[in-house]
Nucleic acid binder design. Structure first.
Length: 412
RNA sequence: CGGAGACUGGCGCAACUGGCUAGCGCGCGGCAUUCGGGUUGCCGAGGUUGCGGGUUCAAAUCCCGCGUCUCCGACCA
């Protein structure tokens, strides 16, 4: 991609929304643009990051047997009356021209339960494991912190349907493992399994909290078993639910995912039963599992940056290489930089090429740091004299000269 | 939802005890200059001051209503 053609510009001016690092850096670097409170546009750079996060999640959901579907953002209010959730204060209500009461879905139990009911009549159909990646709508009383708490936000939600609690429990464990795989691929290794209150069906639900000094949640961490409990739990019991250890350490964190055992709460509301081998009817047992890709994007920005800008992990960086051309007024330098760009493209390397003429070297360095791609390559009269291109990783200050022939091998 | 504060070219701000043509920086267009950590100079475009009403000879400025945004708190399946 030629930087001169890229839609979205870096900005020198500090945005007002200085309450959160992610909102500030992501807008300043041209990844997102706020449309209104808690609602953001994703510009080309930001969308690439979001898609990469989604793709990693998609792969891990497929790996545990999930099948991707896409449900509508709209639903009839009637379904919410059925489950007695139509008074939830975060629900966006709207009316069709015909006068029907509709809802913008904040979650999809009310949609997926009737959907699965249409196709699942026998024990032979179970388990059913369906997920989607879609935008959710929640009328938050106070949207804030950039991508961390929006009114419209991206979510992966997986729903599981089982014959019994034992099958649910086992799948619940499988999802936990898959989630940690995802966090490790996203370089969010500071993410801790956190016990939260479980509602009517089970004693606990679980949150996945990324430890971050700028987080708005507080968790209580047990250094012995490397898990934590949230505020609700700590006020009920002051010890670790796993080992009974009582020295729990408070830490600031960002909730990036959570999972619930729903039991038959929703299946009962929709009269959803299956027949076993003997023809007996049983309630379906459900679980739901959410991860917020947009919130994860914010969490990565929040935890991975320095004073000069963002530092993307390679797995989600919008491009792998930031190629900077300096001295482009010189015909030979320009040609050699263009050639290197073409060579990288031919090798299928994602590269953002700062080809802007008339822009000073300093401005290009500043933009590169702000955008935060993992690897910076630079070609100039000076680097050519030294025998090639300069190579610098975003997280390091070390600069090495590399002959053009060796660059591809080094990157791959 | 409670409390506080804001709204002025695309962005960040100034002018506000009412008074000249609403000013500055960034960004944007042009010309020249420069070329390794946000070059420099000159020229230029861009605003019915959030919306509606009121007071006044005169409103960005004062008053009323509405909207939006921000901050603190409550809330966060």
């Amino acid at each position: 991609m030629l930087y001169s053609k890229l839609f979205g510009k870096t900005s020198k001016n500090i945005t007002i929304d200085a309450d959160s690092i992610n909102a500030k850096l992501l807008s300043q670097a041209g990844f997102i643009q706020k449309q209104m409170s808690g609602v953001y546009n994703y510009l080309p750079l930001g969308l690439r990051v979001l898609k990469k996060i989604q793709q990693i999640i998609r792969q891990e959901m497929d790996a545990i047997g999930g099948q991707e579907i896409l449900m509508p953002a709209l639903s009839q209010e009637e379904s919410w009356i059925t489950t007695k959730r139509h008074h939830m204060d975060v629900l966006f209500h709207l009316q069709s021209q015909a006068g029907n009461s509709l809802v913008l879905n904040p979650t999809h139990e009310e949609v997926i339960t009737p959907l699965v009911k249409k196709y699942t009549l026998s024990y032979k159909d179970l388990p059913v494991l369906l997920y989607q990646i879609q935008d959710k709508f929640r009328d938050e009383p106070r949207a804030k912190s950039g991508l961390l708490r929006g009114r419209e936000f991206n979510m992966k939600d997986l729903y599981s349907f089982h014959q019994n609690v034992k099958d649910l429990d086992s799948f619940y464990q499988t999802v936990q493992k898959a989630y940690f795989k995802i966090f490790s691929r996203l370089d969010l290794s500071q993410t801790v399994l956190t016990f939260a209150s479980g509602g009517s069906f089970s004693q606990y639900s679980h949150e996945f909290q990324t430890i971050s000094s700028t987080g708005e949640d507080t968790i209580y961490y047990c250094s012995k078993c490397k898990i934590a409990v949230n505020k609700e739990i700590i006020s009920q019991q002051s010890s670790c639910p796993q080992c009974g250890h009582s020295k729990l350490e408070p830490k600031k964190s960002i909730e990036i995912a959570n999972i619930f055992k729903l039991g038959d709460k929703f299946s009962s509301a929709f009269d959803f039963f299956y027949q076993d081998k003997q023809g007996q009817k049983h309630p379906i047992i459900m679980g739901c599992y959410g991860i917020g890709p947009s919130r994860i994007m914010g969490a990565i920005a929040e935890t991975s940056h320095d004073k000069n800008g963002l530092i993307w992990p390679a797995s989600v960086a919008p491009y792998q290489v930031h190629l900077i051309g300096i001295d482009l007024f010189d015909t030979d330098t320009k040609k050699q930089t263009n050639d290197l760009y073409q060579k990288l493209l031919d090798a299928n390397i994602e590269v953002l090429y700062d080809d802007r003429p008339q822009v000073s070297a300093g401005a290009k360095f500043t933009d590169a740091d702000l955008i935060g791609l993992p690897l910076r390559l630079l070609v100039s009269q000076k680097s050519l004299k030294q025998g090639g291109a300069e190579l610098k990783y975003r997280h390091s200050s070390q600069i090495n000269i590399l002959p053009f022939q060796e660059i591809l091998a080094k990157i791959k």
